[in-house]
Every structure is written in C-alpha cells, then in structure tokens.
C-alpha cells in the first residue's frame, strides 16, 4: 500500500480527534472511499456523515459526544499519551524528550494547529506527526518512530472508544486506530 495513502488516513484520523466535528470534516468523511471504510468499521457511519453537513442539530450532537468522550470524566478521557502504561511497559519517563525531538525533526509545533493549548502528546497530534512523517519519508521509518508513541496505549484507547461511544463516527475512528497500530494488519 502506498505510504501516501496511509499518511492521508492518519491525517484524517488526526483531525477527527483534534477537535469537534464540523461541516468541513463531514464533507471529507463523506468521500466514497472514506464512507466505505467507515461503514465497514461501524454500521451507521454513512447515515451519520450524510449531508446536509451544516445541520446545527447534528453538529451539536457530535460536539456533545466529543465532549462526553474526550473532555469530561467518565468518557475515554484523556486522549493524551502522558504517562500511559501499556503491554510493553510504559513510555513515561523519556516521553517528553522523544516527542519534542520528533516535533523538531518534522518542523511542526502544536501551536501551528491553532487549537489553543493542545498537549503535544494528544492522540490527534501524534497522528498528525505520523502523517507528516509519511510525507517526508515514504519508507515509513520516521513514521514508525511516531507510531511507536501511540502503540503502547493507542489500541486500548481505540477499543475503549469503539465500545463506549454511541456515535458510528467515533466508533469507526476507534476501530481504525486499532487497525493502523496493528503491524500485522494490511
């Protein structure tokens, strides 16, 4: 599979996690290829992202689900790597250094994303790093270093998200994250 595509998928997923769904995102998600992937991962996806994309009521529902999942206690919060411990053990102590090295190499800053005070280890940011890495180095070595920051905890996060959410959009996102982080998946 061409890395360009994978990078694009990472970028899209990054956007899904970085902030609430808006009309522009719905428009992207409504592309045939994406809708197909989404529906296969979470039945009901197509209906969820169907136009009109600027429907206020639906956008508010999505924003409420986003807040419930990622911003309030009791959801799948927080969505940052932080001091996560995973199957391989944790990546805690030197996480800060690894992350900032990668930002430096990829010439990105969290501030570039215009989202206010988003943590540098936010799942959406790590996905964006990975996407950018695929762009610089199609062979994927650099991207794998970024993925390594997500791997210890991202699958659990994705699975929990998929089972916790009521929105097919976020269910698909969770399952997609699991697939992307699975080295054996196509």
């Amino acid at each position: 599979m061409p890395d360009q595509d994978v990078g694009a998928i990472y970028a899209l997923l990054s956007r899904v996690f970085l902030k609430e769904t808006d009309a522009a995102l719905l428009h992207e998600l409504a592309r045939d290829e994406i809708a197909q992937i989404g529906e296969s991962l979470a039945p009901g996806f197509r209906a969820r992202i169907a136009p009109p994309h600027d429907d206020e009521a639906r956008l508010e529902e999505e924003a409420t689900e986003y807040a419930r999942l990622f911003l309030l206690p009791g959801g799948v919060s927080p969505d940052a790597a932080g001091w996560m411990a995973g199957e391989e053990g944790a990546i805690r102590a030197d996480l800060e250094e690894r992350i900032s090295n990668l930002y430096e190499v990829l010439r990105l800053r969290p501030a570039d994303f215009g989202l206010g005070n988003v943590p540098s280890d936010h799942v959406g940011m790590l996905l964006a790093l990975t996407a950018a890495a695929y762009g610089i180095e199609p062979s994927g070595d650099l991207a794998n270093r970024c993925r390594a920051l997500l791997k210890p905890w991202g699958a659990t996060f994705g699975e929990t998200l998929a089972t916790t959410t009521e929105s097919p959009l976020y269910r698909a996102a969770g399952r997609l994250l699991v697939i992307l982080l699975d080295d054996d998946a196509a």
Binding site: D5, A11, L12, R15, D32, E33, I34, A186
Partner: peptide
C-alpha cells in the same frame, strides 16, 4: 484499504487537521 489515491491528498488532509493554510 483504498487503492484510489487521487481523491485523498495527505497534504490537504493535514491542512484540514491544522485548520490553516500552513
């Protein structure tokens, strides 16, 4: 995974992610 690459441009999507023309 998708085989048709033309409709998905990583750069555009990353721009989407960044919400800016950066």
């Amino acid at each position: 995974m998708t085989k048709n690459t033309n409709s998905l441009d990583r750069r555009d999507l990353l721009k989407l992610a960044m919400g800016a023309a950066a």
